[in-house]
Nucleic acid binder design. Structure first.
Lengths: 243, 243
DNA sequence: ACCGCAGATCTACAATGTAGACCTTCTCTG
DNA sequence: CAGAGAAGGTCTACATTGTAGATCTGCGGT
C-alpha cells in the first residue's frame, strides 16, 4: 500500500539495471532495518522498484537469497592472513567477527542457521572462504592439517556461541529495559530462581568485548598448549615447516 | 488434501481433550519428522485432528508455540545438580545437551534463535531453568556469583557453538554423501581452496563426541585455573563456603 | 431450567513464495 | 543494418500461510 521505502544507498524510480550484488545488498539493508520477517520477496522488490518476479533472475528462491546475504555478511569480516602471529590473528578476527555481527544483528540467525541446510560441499564459495583462510593461518602456524581442522571448529564454534550469547543479552532500549528486565525477573518464582534473581544487576552490565577476550584467553592458551605438545621446538615460537 | 499424518504417540480421531502439553509434544514430533517449514498451524492441527484455530487456545501465536517447543527440548537435558564435582557435572550436561540436540536436529535453530527474540526476563520459565541450575552448580563449586555468570556464558556459548558445528557436518545419507561431498569440494577452485580440498578425507570422518570432549578439556582446564586463582585453597578441591 | 464460560469451529482476509506465459530490450552474427 | 536469440523484466494466477472475529457446543454451578 505505502510507496516503496527508500533505503540508504538505493536507486530511485529512475532505475538503473538490477544486479545480483545490488539485490543482495538491498536485501541486507532491509534485513538490518526491519528484521527477517519483513524481508519478503515483495517488500524487497518494492525497495528496488521492480517486479517481485524480477528477483528470481538473481536468486533461484528465497532460501538462496538468504544464503547470498549470509555470504555478504561473512565477507565483511576481514581475515588478515599475513603478519602477526596466529594468536593475534585469531584474536583480531574474532573481534572483527563480533563487530560485524553487531552491525547486522538480524543476520546472525542466518549465519548460524543457513549452513545447516546445505551440505558443506555445496555452499556458496563466500561461505567457505573464512574456513579456508583460517585453516591457512593455523597450518602456517605449525598445526598439522588435521589438527587445524579441529582447532578451526573449536574456534568458530566458540565465536558463534559468543555472539549468540551477546545478542541474547542485547537490549534495544537501554532506558526502559533495565526496568523491564527487573520486572521480568521479579516475575520469576523466588525459590526456584534465587540465584538468577540475585544476579540481576550483573546481568544488565554486560561487556561483550571483554567477555569475548576472556573466552579467547582460555581458548587460545589451551590451543597453544596443544601446539607445543605436538610440536615441541618450533624454530621461533611458531611456523613449523609443513607446506 | 491427504488425510492427517499419524504421528508416534498421538491420538486418533477418537479425540481426547486437547492440552498445551499434547499440542507442544505433537508439534515437536512434527518438527522432528518434517522440519521447520512443515510445521505450520494447519499441518499441526491436522496431526491433532482439530481445527487450526483451536491451537490458539494453547499458544497465543506461532512464535509462542515455537518458544514452547524450545522449552520442551531444553527440559529434556537433565542437569544433575548434586553429586560429582563441578567439572564432571558440566561435562555430563554437555554430553546430554549434545545428545538431545542430535535427537532433535530440526529444533536446534530454535534453541539458538528463539532467545534472540525475547528479552531474558520475559522468556518462559523452562528456558531459564538451565541457566539457574548451572549457576547453582558453579556457585556451589566456589565461583563468585559474578564469575559464575561469566563462566556460564562461556560454557553455554561453547555448547551452542559445538552443536552448530556438528550439525553442519552431519550428513543424512551416509552412503551417497561421501561422493556428494567430494563432488562438491572438487567444484571448488583448486588454487583458492587448496587446503580445504586437501582436508576432504578428514572432513568426512567427524566424531562429534570426541570433538566435544576435546573442547571441554580446553575449556574446563581454563576454568579450573581461573577458579584456583580466585580461590587459592578450597578445602577439598571444591565447594567454597558461599550459600 | 438458566446462565456463563471455556473449548472448539467456521468463515474470511491479507500476505506470502513462486510457477508459467508473456513482453521488451539488449547483443551478436550474417 | 536486419534479424535472431538470449537475457532481463512483467503480468497473472494459485496454493498456502497466520490469524482476527463471530459463532457454536457442551460443561459446571446456582
Amino acid at each position: 500500500m505505502s510507496p516503496a521505502i527508500q533505503l540508504p544507498g538505493q536507486r530511485g524510480p529512475g532505475r538503473s539495471r538490477l544486479t545480483r550484488d545490488l539485490v543482495l545488498r538491498t536485501a541486507l539493508d532491509l534485513l538490518d532495518a526491519e528484521g527477517l520477517e519483513a524481508l519478503s520477496m515483495r517488500r524487497l522488490a518494492q525497495a528496488l522498484y521492480c517486479d517481485p518476479m524480477a528477483l528470481y533472475r538473481y536468486a533461484a528462491n528465497r532460501a538462496e537469497l538468504l544464503d547470498g546475504i549470509t555470504e555478504l555478511v561473512l565477507n565483511e569480516v576481514a581475515i588478515n592472513q599475513h603478519g602477526q602471529d596466529w594468536e593475534a590473528q585469531l584474536r583480531q578476527t574474532a573481534h572483527d567477527f563480533r563487530l560485524t555481527a553487531l552491525r547486522h544483528p538480524h543476520a546472525v540467525p542466518l549465519l548460524v542457521t543457513r549452513p545447516l541446510s546445505t551440505p558443506l560441499g555445496l555452499r556458496p564459495l563466500g561461505m567457505l572462504r573464512p574456513l579456508e583462510q583460517i585453516l591457512g593461518v593455523l597450518i602456517h602456524a605449525g598445526f598439522a592439517p588435521r589438527d587445524a581442522l579441529h582447532v578451526y571448529r573449536t574456534y568458530y564454534g566458540f565465536l558463534y556461541g559468543h555472539i549468540l550469547n551477546e545478542l541474547q543479552e542485547l537490549i534495544v532500549d537501554p532506558e526502559e529495559d533495565e526496568a523491564l528486565l527487573r520486572l521480568g525477573l521479579y516475575r520469576l518464582p523466588p525459590r526456584e530462581f534465587a540465584t538468577l534473581r540475585r544476579l540481576a544487576p550483573d546481568l544488565v552490565a554486560y561487556d561483550g568485548a571483554a567477555e569475548l577476550d576472556e573466552g579467547l584467553d582460555i581458548l587460545l592458551s589451551g590451543l597453544a598448549q596443544k601446539l607445543d605438545a605436538a610440536d615441541p621446538h618450533p624454530d621461533s615460537g611458531r611456523r613449523r615447516v609443513r607446506r
